[in-house]
Computed example of a mutant assay.
Amino acid sequence: MYPNLYYAFKDIFGIELEGLKLVNSFGFFVALSFILSAWILTLELKRKQNQGLFTFTEEKIFVGAPASFSELLINFLLGFVFGYKIIGAFVTDDAFNDPQAFILSSKGSLAMGLLVGLVFGGLKWWEKQKQKLDKPEERVIRIWPHDRVGDFVLYAAVFGFLGAKVFHNLENWNEFSKDPIGALISFSGLTFYGGLICAGIAIVVFARKRKINVIHLADAMAPTMMFAYAFGRVGCQVSGDGDWGIVNTNPKPISWMPDWLWAYNYPHNVIGEGKPIAGCEGPYCNELIPPVYPTPLYEIIACMFLFGVLWYYRKKLKVAGQLAGLYLILNGLERFFIEKIRVNTKYEDLPFQPTQAELISLTMIIAGIILMVKAKDWFAKYAK
């Protein structure tokens, strides 16, 4: 396992770069997932635009004015945080011994913060000076849905993270009640469906406000979200973030199957779970004994395949809303069955003792079926 990119570069390339200890492997792959998903969503929105399914909105912008105080202040603050924490880590003693603790602490370099803040503010001033006109003017520009992909990604990231934290703490209320502040600011402890629900609501509200057809947007988002989930799971597998399966000591069903594909120890996992590894020194020196099902790996394979299914049917399903319905069904089925071998908190007081994800996935399956059946009646005027 590679808790951060420092260990990945050290193992793969034999290079030791202390600064890479600040780059958490899970966060790196999640960020990469957002970038690639944004590209996929842009392709789909442009395709639907060419079909005449989207229209533009007009917005007024003011050009040629010098940098405002608020613009300079925002850029200074962004630069200050970057200099204080990221660059400051290189000049602060012991920052790399526990990067997460350092980032969450008040430690940093005030000098680096002020210096980089001034540089960021100066760059914004210089950029505006180059665009400055003798007489600033108001212009009307056309904005298409694919021009707002950056906004969609921002909303998905912010509200997705908040929703994932809230749903995780609701699912693990006993742990949250013992240390609420630690649970809220911790980098671990995220629930996918919480993020999906909250990010989905935020994006729908944003789309309606910007007069973007929500049902066509949902169809475009279907393959995008499946890909994002699959690629995001790479971070879970690489870092060993605790999102693994139950203990698996059963014999392999197929003799030629690699051991790590059937049962895995997650050595050097990022959360330090398991028993000490003999001869290992420093952080991240534990492994799971006995091994467990590598469920993140299973989900990577399954959801990449399901992404391919959705990508194929995006041009086959002609009724608006049906692709979104198919996504709900496929995602719900995949998650429902993987829950059977995942480590998760169960609701002991409910019949069959389901997990939070099982309840949500069943709801998604039912909603997806209804959407596919009723889409023609509900969205006939939005036919492709």
Rank of each mutant, 00 (worst) to 15 (best):
V30D: 01
F69R: 12
K10W: 04
I203Y: 01
P99G: 12
K107G: 04
V238M: 11
L162I: 15
F305N: 06
T191L: 13
W39H: 13
C236M: 05
G52V: 13
L154F: 12
M225C: 12
K209L: 11
A164K: 06
Y84D: 01
D11G: 04
R314A: 06
Y298T: 10
I201V: 15
L306I: 14
I369H: 04
Y293R: 02
R233S: 07
S68I: 01
D243N: 11
G79R: 09
F152L: 10
A278Q: 09
G194Y: 05
E18L: 11
L72Q: 10
Y266S: 02
W39T: 13
N24T: 07
A302C: 08
G14N: 07
D134P: 00
P99H: 10
A164P: 06
N75Y: 10
G332A: 08
G19W: 13
K376A: 06
M221S: 14
K384L: 14
Y266W: 09
K21P: 06
K346H: 12
Q49G: 15
I341Q: 03
P251V: 11
F82W: 07
F34M: 13
I185R: 13
W244T: 00
W39G: 00
L43V: 11
P296N: 05
A199M: 08
E299C: 05
G182R: 12
G83S: 01
L196I: 13
N213M: 07
Q237A: 12
A324D: 02
V91P: 00
L333I: 15
K209V: 06
L154P: 00
T92E: 03
K85G: 05
L328D: 01
F90S: 15
H168N: 14
V373L: 10
T57S: 12
F69N: 08
F90D: 01
F176R: 11
Q353K: 15
T191A: 15
N24Q: 10
F231D: 00
D151T: 12
A218S: 14
P258W: 09
A228Q: 08
S37Y: 08
L217H: 09
L17Y: 01
G332N: 05
R148P: 00
P283C: 12
E358P: 03
Y347T: 10
K48N: 14
V234L: 14
A164W: 06
A199F: 08
D241P: 09
L217V: 10
A357P: 01
A95R: 09
A157S: 12
M112I: 00
F96I: 10
G240Y: 02
G240Q: 02
L32H: 03
K211H: 13
R47A: 15
I201K: 04
K316C: 11
Q322C: 05
Y298P: 04
Y6G: 07
T224M: 11
P145C: 09
G242P: 11
A383H: 13
L362Y: 02
Y229E: 09
G195E: 01
E58V: 10
F305G: 14
G242C: 11
A65N: 13
G195D: 02
I254H: 09
V238T: 07
S37M: 12
N97M: 06
V214Q: 03
L306E: 02
